Amino acid sequence: MAQAYGWRALGVLALLVFGCRLGVAQVGPRYVLALDSAPLRSAPPPAGQVQLAGKGLALISFQGLRILALGADAEAYSAEAMAQWPQADLLVLTPAASGRYEGFAPLSARGGLPVIVVADERAPAVAAAPLPALYPMQLWDALHLNKGPVRLRVTALPGGAGSSELAGFMLDMGNGRASYRLYVSCLPLAQSDAQALGQRLPGADLVLLPHGQTPQLLALRGLTAAGETVPVALTAAGHHFKPVRR
C-alpha cells in the first residue's frame, strides 16, 4: 500500500513539474534581442520623448533607445519614405486600417532594422529581398530588448474583456531604477472610449493611437484638472516624459 502511494506521489510531482514548465514556456519571453551600445559623446537625457517624425510615423526615444511606430498603410510606409526615416533600433508596425498596403516589400529599404509585426496567416510571403528581421507577435507574446543599461519589454495585448484579438503593444522601457509604459494601439479610439481604455490599461502611462497621418496621444497618468482623458495630436515638437519609480 505504501509503495502504491509512493508511485502516486511521484506521478503527481511529475505532472506538477510538467505543468510548471509548460506555464513558464507560455508566459516567458518569445524573443530576446541584445543590441550593441556605441559609446555616447554625451549622456542621454534622463527623460524620454514621443514625436512626429513623418506622416503617420512616431519616434519614441528613451535614454539612447529609439523606436519607430507606424501603421502599415501610412504614407510613410514606402521604400522612398523609409530612406528618409531617422535612425532607430526597432520598428513596431501595426496592421493596415485602410488604403494602400504593399506587404513587407517596402521594408527592404531598411534591411538592418528589427521589425515587430502582428502574426497573420494571411500576410504575404516574404520575398527574397534583403528584408529586416521580422518578429511576428501573437497574443501575449513578448520581445525583450537590451541596449546598454536600457531594458525594453514589448507585450502583445488583447482588446476588451474576453477578446482574443491583438489590439496593441505595451512598451515597458526602463533602466533598472524606473520605467515608463507606453501602449501602441493597433486600433483608433473615439474620445468617448478613452476612459474605458484607461480602465483596461491601469499600468500604462501613455497611449499612442493611430489617427490618419497624425497619430494621437492619450495620457493615462496625470489627467487634466477635470479628470478627463482627451487625445491630442502628436507634433514634431513632441511630448516629453519621465520614467516612474514603481
Rank of each mutant, 00 (worst) to 15 (best):
V17S: 02
L22N: 05
S42W: 05
S37L: 04
V27C: 05
L16I: 12
A14R: 01
G23N: 12
P29W: 00
A43M: 09
G23V: 02
G11K: 07
R21E: 12
L40A: 15
P29G: 04
A14M: 05
A38R: 15
L15C: 09
V17C: 03
G11A: 14
L10Q: 10
Q26N: 05
L22V: 12
S37R: 11
R41D: 15
D36C: 07
F18E: 00
A34V: 12
V17Y: 01
F18N: 00
P29I: 02
D36T: 13
V17T: 04
L15A: 12
F18A: 06
L22R: 11
A9I: 08
A38F: 10
S42Q: 14
S42T: 11
Y31P: 15
A34T: 15
A38K: 14
A9T: 06
A14L: 07
V17E: 01
R21A: 13
V12Y: 05
A9L: 10
G11N: 07
F18L: 06
L15M: 11
C20G: 08
A25N: 12
A34R: 13
L33P: 12
L33V: 06
P39A: 05
G19C: 06
L35V: 01
R21G: 12
V12A: 03
A43F: 04
L16P: 00
G23T: 01
A43S: 13
A14F: 08
C20W: 14
D36Q: 15
V27I: 14
V32E: 13
A38H: 12
Q26F: 04
L16T: 04
L33S: 10
L16K: 01
G23S: 06
G19W: 03
L16W: 11
L15T: 07
G19M: 08
A43R: 13
A34E: 15
Q26A: 10
R30S: 08
R21L: 15
C20H: 09
G11M: 09
A43E: 10
L22M: 11
L13E: 00
R21H: 11
L10C: 04
L33I: 08
L15E: 01
V27K: 02
A34C: 07
R41N: 15
V32W: 03
D36V: 11
G28A: 05
R21S: 10
A9C: 03
R30A: 03
F18H: 02
A9W: 02
R41W: 09
F18I: 01
P39E: 08
L10M: 06
A9Y: 03
C20D: 00
R30K: 14
V17I: 11
V32C: 08
A25W: 04
V17H: 03
R41V: 15
R41G: 15
R41Y: 11
A34Y: 03
A38P: 14
L35T: 03
A9R: 07
A38T: 13
L15N: 01
